[in-house]
Protein backbone atom coordinates (compact mmCIF):
# COMPACT_ATOMS: atom_id res chain seq x y z
CA UNK A 1 0.00 0.00 0.00
CA UNK A 2 2.66 2.42 1.08
CA UNK A 3 4.78 1.68 -1.94
CA UNK A 4 1.78 2.34 -4.07
CA UNK A 5 1.17 5.73 -2.51
CA UNK A 6 4.76 6.75 -2.97
CA UNK A 7 4.68 6.00 -6.64
CA UNK A 8 4.39 9.32 -8.49
CA UNK A 9 1.01 9.89 -10.11
CA UNK A 10 1.07 9.65 -13.89
CA UNK A 11 1.16 13.09 -15.47
CA UNK A 12 -2.34 14.38 -16.15
CA UNK A 13 -3.06 14.10 -19.84
CA UNK A 14 -3.37 17.58 -21.27
CA UNK A 15 -6.78 17.80 -22.91
CA UNK A 16 -7.02 19.94 -26.01
CA UNK A 17 -9.88 22.35 -26.18
CA UNK A 18 -12.37 22.03 -29.03
CA UNK A 19 -10.83 25.08 -30.64
CA UNK A 20 -7.34 23.60 -30.51
CA UNK A 21 -8.51 20.37 -32.06
CA UNK A 22 -10.81 21.79 -34.73
CA UNK A 23 -8.79 24.72 -35.97
CA UNK A 24 -6.03 22.86 -37.91
CA UNK A 25 -8.67 20.68 -39.50
CA UNK A 26 -10.78 23.65 -40.62
CA UNK A 27 -7.72 25.44 -41.95
CA UNK A 28 -6.70 22.49 -44.10
CA UNK A 29 -10.20 22.07 -45.51
CA UNK A 30 -10.55 25.73 -46.34
CA UNK A 31 -7.10 26.05 -47.91
CA UNK A 32 -7.59 22.92 -50.02
CA UNK A 33 -10.99 24.18 -51.14
CA UNK A 34 -9.56 27.57 -52.10
CA UNK A 35 -6.57 26.22 -54.06
CA UNK A 36 -8.50 23.55 -55.94
CA UNK A 37 -11.49 25.85 -56.45
CA UNK A 38 -9.26 28.47 -58.04
CA UNK A 39 -7.60 25.88 -60.24
CA UNK A 40 -10.98 24.53 -61.38
CA UNK A 41 -12.17 28.07 -62.01
CA UNK A 42 -9.09 28.78 -64.10
CA UNK A 43 -9.56 25.66 -66.21
CA UNK A 44 -13.28 26.03 -66.78
CA UNK A 45 -12.97 29.69 -67.68
CA UNK A 46 -10.47 28.98 -70.43
CA UNK A 47 -11.77 29.79 -73.89
CA UNK A 48 -11.34 26.21 -75.07
CA UNK A 49 -13.03 24.62 -72.05
CA UNK A 50 -16.47 24.09 -73.67
CA UNK A 51 -14.82 22.16 -76.51
CA UNK A 52 -12.66 20.18 -74.14
CA UNK A 53 -15.69 19.34 -72.06
CA UNK A 54 -17.64 18.24 -75.13
CA UNK A 55 -14.80 16.07 -76.44
CA UNK A 56 -13.52 14.50 -73.21
CA UNK A 57 -16.04 14.94 -70.42
CA UNK A 58 -19.24 14.52 -72.36
CA UNK A 59 -21.60 12.90 -69.89
CA UNK A 60 -23.89 11.44 -72.56
CA UNK A 61 -20.96 9.91 -74.43
CA UNK A 62 -19.52 8.46 -71.22
CA UNK A 63 -22.84 6.87 -70.32
CA UNK A 64 -23.30 5.53 -73.84
CA UNK A 65 -19.81 4.03 -74.01
CA UNK A 66 -19.78 2.73 -70.46
CA UNK A 67 -21.36 -0.74 -70.91
CA UNK A 68 -18.93 -1.91 -73.59
CA UNK A 69 -15.94 -0.27 -71.94
CA UNK A 70 -16.90 -1.89 -68.65
CA UNK A 71 -17.17 -5.29 -70.29
CA UNK A 72 -13.69 -4.75 -71.70
CA UNK A 73 -12.49 -3.71 -68.26
CA UNK A 74 -13.70 -7.02 -66.83
CA UNK A 75 -11.37 -8.67 -69.34
CA UNK A 76 -8.51 -6.50 -68.04
CA UNK A 77 -9.24 -7.46 -64.48
CA UNK A 78 -9.55 -11.18 -65.12
CA UNK A 79 -6.29 -11.20 -67.08
CA UNK A 80 -4.75 -9.26 -64.20
CA UNK A 81 -5.99 -11.66 -61.52
CA UNK A 82 -4.90 -14.79 -63.38
CA UNK A 83 -1.55 -13.30 -64.40
CA UNK A 84 -0.94 -12.25 -60.80
CA UNK A 85 -1.20 -15.81 -59.54
CA UNK A 86 0.92 -17.16 -62.39
CA UNK A 87 3.60 -14.49 -61.82
CA UNK A 88 3.70 -15.08 -58.07
CA UNK A 89 4.42 -18.77 -58.64
CA UNK A 90 6.69 -18.64 -61.69
CA UNK A 91 8.79 -15.79 -60.27
CA UNK A 92 9.28 -17.70 -57.04
CA UNK A 93 10.45 -20.74 -58.98
CA UNK A 94 12.91 -18.57 -60.91
CA UNK A 95 14.19 -16.94 -57.73
CA UNK A 96 14.73 -20.32 -56.07
CA UNK A 97 16.53 -21.66 -59.16
CA UNK A 98 18.73 -18.61 -59.13
CA UNK A 99 19.76 -18.99 -55.50
CA UNK A 100 20.49 -22.72 -55.52
CA UNK A 101 24.15 -23.70 -55.17
CA UNK A 102 26.00 -26.83 -56.17
CA UNK A 103 27.02 -28.41 -59.49
CA UNK A 104 23.78 -30.32 -59.98
CA UNK A 105 21.73 -27.17 -59.81
CA UNK A 106 23.98 -25.20 -62.19
CA UNK A 107 21.73 -25.60 -65.28
CA UNK A 108 18.73 -24.28 -63.36
CA UNK A 109 20.75 -21.39 -62.03
CA UNK A 110 22.14 -20.45 -65.44
CA UNK A 111 18.68 -20.71 -66.96
CA UNK A 112 17.23 -18.36 -64.33
CA UNK A 113 20.05 -15.82 -64.71
CA UNK A 114 19.73 -15.77 -68.52
CA UNK A 115 15.96 -15.63 -68.41
CA UNK A 116 15.90 -12.70 -65.99
CA UNK A 117 18.56 -10.74 -67.86
CA UNK A 118 17.00 -11.29 -71.28
CA UNK A 119 13.38 -10.67 -70.39
CA UNK A 120 14.11 -7.61 -68.29
CA UNK A 121 15.95 -6.04 -71.20
CA UNK A 122 12.97 -6.27 -73.57
CA UNK A 123 10.14 -3.69 -73.45
CA UNK A 124 6.82 -5.21 -72.33
CA UNK A 125 5.13 -3.87 -75.46
CA UNK A 126 7.58 -5.78 -77.64
CA UNK A 127 6.94 -9.00 -75.69
CA UNK A 128 3.20 -8.57 -76.09
CA UNK A 129 3.56 -7.99 -79.83
CA UNK A 130 5.93 -10.97 -80.23
CA UNK A 131 3.74 -13.40 -78.36
CA UNK A 132 0.33 -11.95 -79.23
CA UNK A 133 0.92 -11.82 -82.99
CA UNK A 134 3.91 -14.09 -83.41
CA UNK A 135 2.92 -17.32 -81.68
CA UNK A 136 -0.62 -17.58 -83.08
CA UNK A 137 0.87 -17.00 -86.56
CA UNK A 138 2.92 -20.18 -86.17
CA UNK A 139 -0.36 -22.12 -86.07
CA UNK A 140 1.11 -24.83 -83.88
CA UNK A 141 -1.54 -27.50 -83.40
CA UNK A 142 -2.64 -28.06 -79.84
CA UNK A 143 -1.75 -24.58 -78.64
CA UNK A 144 -4.32 -21.84 -78.13
CA UNK A 145 -4.28 -19.22 -80.87
CA UNK A 146 -6.01 -16.29 -79.27
CA UNK A 147 -4.22 -13.01 -78.76
CA UNK A 148 -5.78 -12.86 -75.30
CA UNK A 149 -4.00 -16.05 -74.20
CA UNK A 150 -0.59 -15.24 -75.68
CA UNK A 151 -0.75 -11.63 -74.64
CA UNK A 152 -1.38 -12.75 -71.09
CA UNK A 153 1.51 -15.20 -71.36
CA UNK A 154 3.77 -12.34 -72.47
CA UNK A 155 2.74 -10.29 -69.43
CA UNK A 156 3.40 -13.22 -67.10
CA UNK A 157 6.81 -13.97 -68.61
CA UNK A 158 7.81 -10.31 -68.51
CA UNK A 159 6.66 -9.44 -65.02
CA UNK A 160 8.03 -12.68 -63.58
CA UNK A 161 11.57 -11.51 -64.31
CA UNK A 162 11.03 -8.43 -62.15
CA UNK A 163 9.16 -10.31 -59.44
CA UNK A 164 11.92 -12.94 -59.34
CA UNK A 165 14.47 -10.24 -58.55
CA UNK A 166 12.20 -8.90 -55.83
CA UNK A 167 11.93 -12.37 -54.30
CA UNK A 168 15.67 -12.83 -54.54
CA UNK A 169 16.39 -9.62 -52.66
CA UNK A 170 14.02 -10.90 -49.99
CA UNK A 171 15.87 -14.21 -49.77
CA UNK A 172 19.22 -12.48 -49.50
CA UNK A 173 17.86 -10.31 -46.69
CA UNK A 174 17.18 -13.40 -44.56
CA UNK A 175 19.91 -13.61 -41.96
CA UNK A 176 22.73 -16.12 -42.58
CA UNK A 177 22.14 -17.58 -39.12
CA UNK A 178 18.84 -18.96 -40.39
CA UNK A 179 20.64 -20.95 -43.07
CA UNK A 180 23.24 -22.19 -40.60
CA UNK A 181 20.53 -23.25 -38.14
CA UNK A 182 18.55 -25.09 -40.80
CA UNK A 183 21.65 -26.82 -42.10
CA UNK A 184 22.79 -27.78 -38.61
CA UNK A 185 19.37 -29.34 -37.98
CA UNK A 186 19.97 -31.58 -40.98
CA UNK A 187 17.66 -29.89 -43.48
CA UNK A 188 18.77 -30.23 -47.09
CA UNK A 189 19.44 -27.16 -49.20
CA UNK A 190 16.02 -27.57 -50.78
CA UNK A 191 14.21 -28.03 -47.45
CA UNK A 192 16.05 -25.04 -46.02
CA UNK A 193 14.75 -22.99 -48.92
CA UNK A 194 11.16 -24.14 -48.65
CA UNK A 195 10.70 -24.19 -44.89
CA UNK A 196 13.08 -21.52 -43.61
CA UNK A 197 14.07 -19.00 -46.27
CA UNK A 198 11.15 -18.59 -48.66
CA UNK A 199 8.43 -17.92 -46.05
CA UNK A 200 10.56 -15.19 -44.50
CA UNK A 201 11.52 -13.80 -47.91
CA UNK A 202 7.91 -13.58 -49.06
CA UNK A 203 6.98 -11.73 -45.90
CA UNK A 204 9.92 -9.36 -46.42
CA UNK A 205 8.98 -8.43 -49.98
CA UNK A 206 5.19 -8.44 -49.85
CA UNK A 207 4.95 -4.63 -50.17
CA UNK A 208 7.33 -4.58 -53.14
CA UNK A 209 5.36 -7.37 -54.83
CA UNK A 210 2.11 -5.49 -54.31
CA UNK A 211 3.67 -2.46 -56.01
CA UNK A 212 4.36 -4.65 -59.02
CA UNK A 213 0.75 -5.83 -58.88
CA UNK A 214 -0.45 -2.20 -59.12
CA UNK A 215 1.81 -1.59 -62.12
CA UNK A 216 0.51 -4.75 -63.77
CA UNK A 217 -3.07 -3.62 -63.20
CA UNK A 218 -2.47 -0.80 -65.70
CA UNK A 219 -0.08 -2.65 -67.98
CA UNK A 220 -2.64 -5.29 -68.88
CA UNK A 221 -4.04 -2.55 -71.14
CA UNK A 222 -1.08 -3.30 -73.43
CA UNK A 223 -3.09 -6.27 -74.68
CA UNK A 224 -5.25 -3.76 -76.60
CA UNK A 225 -2.48 -3.38 -79.17
CA UNK A 226 -2.87 -6.99 -80.29
CA UNK A 227 -6.61 -6.62 -80.70
CA UNK A 228 -7.82 -7.93 -77.36
CA UNK A 229 -11.12 -6.18 -76.69
CA UNK A 230 -10.24 -4.81 -73.31
CA UNK A 231 -11.37 -1.48 -71.86
CA UNK A 232 -8.88 0.58 -73.86
CA UNK A 233 -9.68 -1.21 -77.11
CA UNK A 234 -13.42 -0.81 -76.62
CA UNK A 235 -12.95 2.86 -75.80
CA UNK A 236 -10.89 3.33 -78.95
CA UNK A 237 -13.56 1.63 -81.03
CA UNK A 238 -16.15 3.99 -79.60
CA UNK A 239 -13.91 6.97 -80.30
CA UNK A 240 -13.35 5.91 -83.86
CA UNK A 241 -17.09 5.68 -84.38
CA UNK A 242 -18.15 8.96 -82.77
CA UNK A 243 -15.01 11.14 -82.85
CA UNK A 244 -15.52 11.74 -79.15
CA UNK A 245 -12.84 10.93 -76.58
CA UNK A 246 -15.09 10.65 -73.54
CA UNK A 247 -15.02 6.86 -73.77
CA UNK A 248 -11.28 6.99 -73.05
CA UNK A 249 -12.06 9.05 -69.97
CA UNK A 250 -14.58 6.37 -68.97
CA UNK A 251 -11.83 3.74 -69.31
CA UNK A 252 -9.45 5.92 -67.31
CA UNK A 253 -12.00 6.25 -64.52
CA UNK A 254 -12.44 2.50 -64.37
CA UNK A 255 -8.69 1.96 -64.09
CA UNK A 256 -8.47 4.58 -61.35
CA UNK A 257 -11.31 2.93 -59.46
CA UNK A 258 -9.21 -0.25 -59.40
CA UNK A 259 -5.68 1.08 -58.91
CA UNK A 260 -6.26 3.66 -56.18
CA UNK A 261 -7.71 1.22 -53.62
CA UNK A 262 -4.98 -1.23 -54.56
CA UNK A 263 -2.31 1.42 -53.97
CA UNK A 264 -3.85 2.34 -50.60
CA UNK A 265 -3.89 -1.33 -49.65
CA UNK A 266 -0.20 -1.59 -50.61
CA UNK A 267 0.59 1.39 -48.38
CA UNK A 268 -1.29 -0.27 -45.55
CA UNK A 269 0.63 -3.54 -45.93
CA UNK A 270 3.93 -1.67 -46.13
CA UNK A 271 3.11 0.22 -42.93
CA UNK A 272 2.21 -3.00 -41.11
CA UNK A 273 5.43 -4.54 -42.35
CA UNK A 274 7.46 -1.63 -41.04
CA UNK A 275 5.76 -1.82 -37.64
CA UNK A 276 6.59 -5.50 -37.47
CA UNK A 277 10.26 -4.81 -38.21
CA UNK A 278 10.46 -2.08 -35.61
CA UNK A 279 8.94 -4.35 -33.00
CA UNK A 280 11.42 -7.07 -33.74
CA UNK A 281 14.50 -4.91 -33.20
CA UNK A 282 13.39 -3.81 -29.72
Amino acid sequence: MIAEERRPAPPARRTLSFRERALPFVISIVSVAIVFGLAARLVTSATHWPRIKLQFFNRDAIVAAFPTVFRGFLTNMSVWAIALVAIAIWALVLAIFRSLNGPWFAPLKVFAVLYIDLIRGIPSLLLVLLFGFGVPALQIPGLPRTGLFWGAVAMVLGYSAYAAEVYRSGMEAVHDGQRAAAKALGLSQWQTMIYAIVPQAVRNVLPALLNLAVALQKDVALLSVIGVRDAVREAQIYTARTFNYSSLIAAAMLFLAATIPMARFTDYVARKDQERRLQRTV
Binding site: G177, A180, A181, A184, L185, L187, Y195, Q200, R280
Partner: peptide, 26 residues
Protein backbone atom coordinates in the same frame (compact mmCIF):
# COMPACT_ATOMS: atom_id res chain seq x y z
CA UNK B 1 23.64 -31.03 -33.07
CA UNK B 2 24.79 -27.45 -32.52
CA UNK B 3 23.22 -24.50 -30.75
CA UNK B 4 24.45 -21.01 -31.60
CA UNK B 5 24.93 -17.88 -29.59
CA UNK B 6 22.27 -16.11 -31.67
CA UNK B 7 19.49 -18.73 -31.14
CA UNK B 8 18.48 -18.50 -34.83
CA UNK B 9 14.94 -19.69 -34.22
CA UNK B 10 12.70 -19.56 -37.30
CA UNK B 11 10.72 -16.35 -36.72
CA UNK B 12 7.76 -17.36 -38.89
CA UNK B 13 7.04 -20.54 -36.91
CA UNK B 14 5.74 -20.95 -33.41
CA UNK B 15 7.76 -22.79 -30.77
CA UNK B 16 6.15 -26.16 -31.43
CA UNK B 17 6.78 -25.93 -35.19
CA UNK B 18 10.36 -24.81 -34.61
CA UNK B 19 10.95 -27.87 -32.46
CA UNK B 20 9.15 -30.39 -34.69
CA UNK B 21 10.44 -29.23 -38.10
CA UNK B 22 13.64 -31.26 -38.21
CA UNK B 23 12.17 -34.43 -36.64
CA UNK B 24 9.37 -34.38 -39.20
CA UNK B 25 11.26 -33.34 -42.32
CA UNK B 26 14.68 -34.85 -41.64
Amino acid sequence: GIVFQAFNLFPHMNVLDNVTLAPRKV
